[in-house]
Design a protein around this nucleic acid. Structure first.
Length: 662
RNA sequence: GCGCCCGUAGCUCAGUUGGAUAGAGCGUCUGCCUUCUAAGCAGAUGGUCGGGGGUUCGAUUCCCUCCGGGCGCGCCA
């Protein structure tokens, strides 16, 4: 509701200024520092003052008196040196929040948005860093869908890459297992944990003798060609680990529409199609000299961002130098790099490749149907995948350069508009606090010990596994629930503990903005007090407690609240605090809008916390069920209902569920 | 060397396109459970917004510069 009023005010002011002064201005709106100053304020008269060469306060005065009435806004006042402050009509707002809180979300419409996230190499268990990616992506998808956008979630599976190859080397050359044996092993529930350890062993295996790296090359080649034991084992391992990842993510209520696999990018000749286009347009060329001789390269200069090939060519000092700086797309042995495949994939996402995958539906480990790409015939009538008008790639900040290369690839092919609509949803990594790294049994080098945090490393086997963290959280929450509610049925205890654990971890990873590097520490992550998910859930649980008790005591019925009562209480002594709570309750739309605009789910996490905090404050000031005045009791009850509806909605956008009791 | 990110209270972080007296959580200290759940509330403590210039009516926010930290620049992904 807040957003609606803000937009209404902005439009009215823009129109008024255009008509009165024949000027077009950008109306910036902000929240005044104090609620006594109104709910919305604009300093745009300061800008206007310059252009009109008049005092800002006089202009503000003039506008305030001549502006036509705006529905939902009671009055507009001049404040300070020339601010315009708007005051909402509180009884109108009350009604609007009531209908808004219980309205159904809009049906999806408009062009498709693809959000790609998770993308964990299927060769080891998911760790805390992967969780940040998946939770950010999943939450962003929820926000987009909530605001009526049509969204397709994709989790790209690099099942033919070097990381899978390394684990295959481990199985075949260190452990000397056979394909059937590995297949049997892959059925174990935590096969991903086994691979985690094996992957670290492979790293050592190479370090002991560098010539062993030849095994990696051979294995990769076999996997890419899709023939022999290595390819068979790679498929077994990748499929099984993907299953583990899907189970892990399902624990956090994270799901996908499609799993596009790299094997299909290769076998369905996606790359060949992209290669032809890139060659035809001159976007890439064969380097004839220098260190990249024999490779197909894309010209590149670091600095000006994604620089189109043409501009680079004009400024390049010498062809050899330029080629040495260029990004290799096809290696001299003819194999394509990851970026090359990514360009093809990105073209497909926009429907620009002229090819499509085959698709097959599988029951996912958590039960529902999930679509996966396949090289064989596939389903005759799959849903229409791809063909998006906007693409968000959720990838950590270290890969910014590669994302720019992909974008430059699209530009070089003349798809400027699609390049603009290829958005790198970037975020900083989750590292471990030095204390946490030690706790994980990792010996810190003197340099590492001095650092503020230690980077997670799959290769070294250093990291906090997602399932371990969840297990620990669930154990802690279950113990607490058990103690508080000994009579609760065990199944409900477990469900409650699970909901609290999920909210703890999701909120913990969402409360930081994307540019903050998170130094992970068990103490912070296992905290359930203060700015945490459980704190937000607790506010809802309190409201539900009131409703239960109210129903038992037959005092819960929320009767009519008259307009006179509303305007009376909001203008009375205790009205300010009540109004602030209502205002915040009606501001979810504004928080979601800002979160989508800034690609910052943290805004919604912050909102949920503030609303919970504001409610807790209200809860202590007003004892609802013992309120003698029936009209006031109804009013207080209806506030809590509105808060509950909006807070539950905010939490569900964050992927969190509020239990009945906790 | 080039590029990106960060520097705000003891610690961890917010601060929405430049706006009114810079906020929250944790920590420390003091109160509050016979009451709708204390996973809570109230209060106290705590700041040269890394330093210095500049633009502006106005800068934590924009520009320059310096200092300190992280990351990226592979025929790895």
């Amino acid at each position: 509701m807040y957003l609606i009023l803000a937009n209404r005010l902005r439009e009215a002011l823009t129109r008024h200024v255009a008509e009165t002064y024949n000027l077009s201005v950008e109306i910036s709106l902000e929240k005044p520092p104090k609620i006594e100053m109104g709910e919305l304020a604009s300093p745009f008269c300061f800008d206007l003052a310059k252009r009109l060469k008049r005092a800002p306060r006089h202009i503000a005065q003039e506008i305030a008196t001549s502006l036509a009435a705006i529905p939902g806004i009671a009055r507009i006042e001049v404040a300070g040196a020339g601010y315009l402050n708007a005051f909402f009509d509180r009884t109108v707002f009350w009604d609007s929040v009531g209908s808004e809180s219980f309205a159904a979300p809009p049906a999806p419409s408009g062009g498709k948005i693809i959000v790609e996230h998770t993308n964990i190499n299927p060769n080891k268990a998911a760790h805390i860093g992967h969780l940040r990616n998946a939770i950010l992506g999943d939450t962003f998808v929820r926000l987009l869908r909530h605001s009526g956008r049509r969204v397709e979630t994709q989790n790209y599976i690099d099942n033919t890459g070097v990381q899978v190859a390394d684990v295959v080397v481990g199985f075949l050359h260190i452990e000397k297992r056979t394909a059937p044996n590995i297949r049997a092993l892959s059925q174990e529930p935590r096969f991903d944990y086994y691979c985690w350890d094996l992957y670290a062993k492979v790293t050592q295996f190479y370090e002991e003798d560098k010539t062993r790296l030849a095994l990696r090359g051979e294995t990769m080649q076999r996997i890419e060609e899709g023939i022999g034991e290595a390819a068979e084992v790679a498929e077994t391992v990748a499929d099984a680990v993907v299953g583990c990842h899907l189970r892990t993510m399902a624990r956090l209520d994270i799901r996908y529409d499609l799993l596009p696999r790299e094997s299909e990018i290769l076998r369905l000749k996606f790359w060949d199609a992209a290669f032809v286009k890139l060659k035809e347009t001159g976007a890439i060329h064969l380097a004839s000299a220098g260190k990249n001789a024999g490779c197909w390269v894309m010209p590149w200069t670091q600095g000006e961002g994604a620089t189109p090939a043409a501009t680079v060519a004009a400024e390049a000092p010498a062809p050899e130098d330029a080629d040495a700086q260029a990004k290799v797309i096809v290696r001299s042995n003819g194999t394509v790099t990851y970026v090359g495949k990514d360009i093809a994939y990105q073209l497909w996402k926009f429907g620009l490749l002229g090819r499509d995958f085959h698709y097959a539906a599988y029951p996912s480990p958590s039960g529902e149907i999930i679509w996966m790409t396949t090289s064989s015939a596939g389903d005759p009538h799959p849903p229409a995948f791809g063909g998006a008008e906007l693409v968000y790639n959720v990838i950590d900040a270290r890969q910014a350069y590669l994302q720019q290369v992909v974008s430059a690839g699209l530009r070089a092919l003349g798809h400027n508009s699609e390049a603009d609509r290829s958005i790198h949803f970037s975020y900083e990594i989750v590292a471990l606090s030095p204390r946490c790294a030690r706790e994980m049994g990792y010996e810190l080098s003197p340099e590492d010990a001095k650092k503020p945090y230690v980077e997670v490393s799959g290769r070294k086997g250093l990291g906090v596994k997602a399932d371990d963290l969840l297990d620990r959280l669930e154990a802690a929450t279950l113990a607490e629930v058990h103690q508080r509610h000994p009579l609760m049925p065990p199944a409900e205890q477990r469900a409650t503990a699970h909901a609290i654990a999920v909210s703890a971890i999701r909120f913990f990873l969402l409360k930081f903005t994307r540019t903050a590097t998170i130094a992970f520490d068990f103490e912070d992550a296992l905290s359930f007090e203060g700015e945490t998910g459980p704190y937000c859930q607790y506010a809802v649980v309190r409201i539900r407690g009131i409703r239960r008790k109210g129903a038992e005591a037959a005092t819960g019925g929320a009767g009519q609240v008259s307009k006179e009562f509303l305007s009376g209480i909001f203008s009375g002594a205790e009205g300010q605090g009540l109004w602030e709570l209502l205002l915040l309750t009606g501001s979810l739309d504004s928080a979601v809008d800002a979160a989508i605009g800034a690609q910052e789910p943290a805004f919604v996490a912050k909102y949920a916390f503030q609303l919970a905090q504001s409610f807790n404050n209200f809860y202590h000031k007003h004892h609802i069920l013992s309120e003698e005045d029936p009209q006031k009791r109804s009013f207080l009850l209806q506030i809590t209902e509105r808060v509950e509806a909006q807070l539950v909605r905010a939490l569900s956008l964050l992927g969190m569920e509020a239990p009945e009791k906790m």
